[in-house]
Amino acid sequence: MAAAQVVRSEWTKIRSVASTVWTLSLAVVVTVALGILISLLSRHEFDNLSRTERLSFDPTFVSFAGMSLGQLAMIVFGVLVVSNEYSTGMIRTSLAAVPQRGTFLFSKLAVATALAFGVGLATSFVTFFLGQAMLGEHRAAIGDPGVLRAVIGGGLYMTLIAVFSMGIAAILRGPLLSLGILMPFFFLISNILGNVGATEKVGRYLPDQAGSSIMRVVTPVDDDTPYGPWGGLGIMALWVLAALLGGFLSLKKRDA
């Protein structure tokens, strides 16, 4: 079984269902629109900020504020790519055609990851430039130190969120269960754990908390985070690897 055949087949699958288009479009629109809105609000709020707050002001990171919501659409994309196979019963047809389950899963993930990265990277650049335009005199330039890394990192962050969701969906199989766990986790629980003093030290090792540090250019004044931007993304990547390993083992061991 040539993996190239399976990759082509998975590309046909992903481009021929409506959910791919609407989840990815939603991710772009929500991230960009919310980024513009928050950038605009921040520009007007800037004069009311305290001195330390101004020193910590990170125009690049501000323009990515829409990702907190846009990533939810990326999660839906990642979950549906995998769990659609189970909820429709297509998985039995798919595995009869490609009985090498590792080849099947990783071809599917490769196609979906490439697509998520393309869309994520484009979203990241668009939201950066539009966000900076809204920030007026407080804006950052793409040539400033660390900014290009943060913008490319934004695309990587969205990609990793989607891949993490694919791994979880491969473990849990059902779309409702997967979304029911991932959505509240990333929208609420992770934020609470990361911002409450008692759990902050643990919370910052959660995938989204750690990974989002790649999008920071200005380090907050009293910051004691023990990892840098790439370290944070690395922590997130470890979470993703663990989810993928779990998904692979689940597919490999269980009956379809």
């Binding site: 699958k13 429709t88 039995r92």
Partner: peptide
């Protein structure tokens, strides 16, 4: 394997949002 043995196990084992042509095309390509 589809060139050795073809099977119909469950007629509903299809993604409903995909056209008949694309359903067969993705199987053929694999």
């Amino acid at each position: 394997p589809l060139t050795y043995i073809g099977a119909l196990l469950d007629a509903k084992a299809v993604h409903g949002g995909r056209s008949a042509f694309n359903h067969l095309l993705c199987l053929a390509q694999s």
